[in-house]
């Protein structure tokens, strides 16, 4: 992991309230699938850096999918090319890049950039409406209003296609409420093969502040350093 300066090279809307922001860093180690970076806006008043999955990386260039949520993300998605950022990364543990079945809710699709477009993985991707989906090739879509793919929530879509999930790894990502709903709906066999990437409010992103803990069967674990990816079975959400 390193701390470096990044410069926004492009910032384009990717879906309703999600921007695809490309950042050229001075230097960056190669990230692995599912890792993230802490991002802050240089030369602005004090704020904590925010964690974002590294959606794509090509050498020093990182692509993030940034969803408008609070004050900092609202500012970030308005920043034009040339804006300087603080970048710390790559951070967190990672997914094995073996073929997998992926279930991604909303902007958490960003954790799976490396799997998209690879023919041996199966992707379930859901959001509220078709306007909230970024334009990618997934195998199955769900929207709450039925504007694209299955009408209803992603967990139910996955259950109707349960047979898709053979012996491959099962990876999910999304807000805690989604992960909880998913765990409550699936059987033990699936749960045993499932790893979940969690979101958390983070102070540092590299394991030192102890601000981001989640309760697990092994006690409190740091989402940023012991995760963000945990075996689903270990989580006490």
């Amino acid at each position: 992991m390193i701390e470096t300066q990044g410069i926004i090279v492009s910032n384009k809307p990717a879906a309703e309230s999600i921007h695809r922001i490309e950042v050229e860093t001075e230097r960056m180690e190669l990230s692995k699938p599912g890792q993230f970076a802490m991002v802050g806006i240089s030369n602005e008043d004090f704020h904590l850096n925010r964690p974002f999955s590294i959606y794509r990386q090509k050498e020093n260039k990182l692509t993030f999918l940034i969803q408008k949520r609070g004050a900092i993300t609202s500012r970030l998605i308005k920043k034009s090319a040339g804006t300087k950022l603080r970048i710390i990364g790559p951070l967190g543990n990672w997914f094995s890049d073996a073929p997998a079945v992926i279930v991604a809710a909303g902007s958490s699709i960003a954790a799976f950039g490396d799997f998209i477009g690879r023919n041996n993985s199966t992707i379930f991707y859901g959001a509220a409406t078709k306007y909230d989906l970024i334009d990618i090739k997934a195998d199955f879509f769900s929207t709450m209003d039925g504007s694209r793919g299955f009408r209803g929530n992603l967990v139910e879509l996955f259950m109707t296609k349960r047979e898709q999930s053979d012996k491959r790894n099962l990876y999910i990502a999304g807000p805690a409420a989604f992960i909880k709903a998913f765990r409550n709906r699936i059987d033990d066999d699936l749960a045993n093969r499932c790893c979940a990437s969690l979101e958390a409010y983070m102070g540092c992103g590299f394991g030192v502040c102890l601000g981001c803990v989640v309760n697990t069967k092994n006690g409190y674990r740091r989402v940023c350093k012991d995760g963000t990816i945990f075996p689903l079975k270990e989580l006490l959400l």
Partner: peptide, 16 residues
């Protein structure tokens, strides 16, 4: 330690 949420950003600072 305490249960989460453990930290929150505030104007020009944070509370832990």
């Amino acid at each position: 330690g305490n249960p989460p949420m453990r930290i929150i950003e505030t104007p020009s600072g944070m509370i832990n």
